[in-house]
């Protein structure tokens, strides 16, 4: 159980915990905006932790840089998505939930 393995395990466990939190938030929260809130923030942190854990495990600096860039682009992407979806949802008048057929 070398030091790096210990770090990897801790980071991965933390990442998984955050992912679990994000998913539960997505299921439990009452309306769209709170779900957006949960999903975007928590999942990004979860991905960041897992990415850091794996970067340590893989060890090669190039891979670590690549993983960090991937995480950075995900931050950009999901925050934009969160903003756009929220703005889209605000623009719609009373949202009639879609009743499944028959």
């Amino acid at each position: 159980m070398t030091m790096t393995n210990l770090f990897t395990i801790i980071l991965l466990l933390a990442g998984c915990f955050f992912f679990l939190g994000g998913t539960l938030g997505l299921l439990r929260f009452p309306d769209l905006f709170s779900r957006l809130h949960a999903l975007t923030k928590v999942d990004n942190i979860g991905l960041g932790l897992i990415a850091a854990g794996m970067a340590i495990h893989i060890g090669s600096p190039w891979a670590a840089l690549k993983i960090f860039l991937i995480w950075l682009s995900t931050l950009l992407a999901s925050s934009t998505a969160c903003y756009l979806v929220a703005k889209f949802q605000l623009g719609r008048p009373s949202e009639s939930p879609e009743v499944p057929a028959k």
């Binding site: 990442g15 992912f19 994000g22 998913t23 997505l26 769209l32 779900r35 957006l36 999903l39 975007t40 999942d43 990004n44 979860g46 991905l47 897992i50 990415a51 991937i70 995900t74 999901s78 998505a81 979806v85």
Partner: peptide, 13 residues
Amino acid sequence: LLTTQLFGTTGMA
């Protein structure tokens, strides 16, 4: 659409 976001991020993980 949110779930597609979730799948995307979790898939990347």
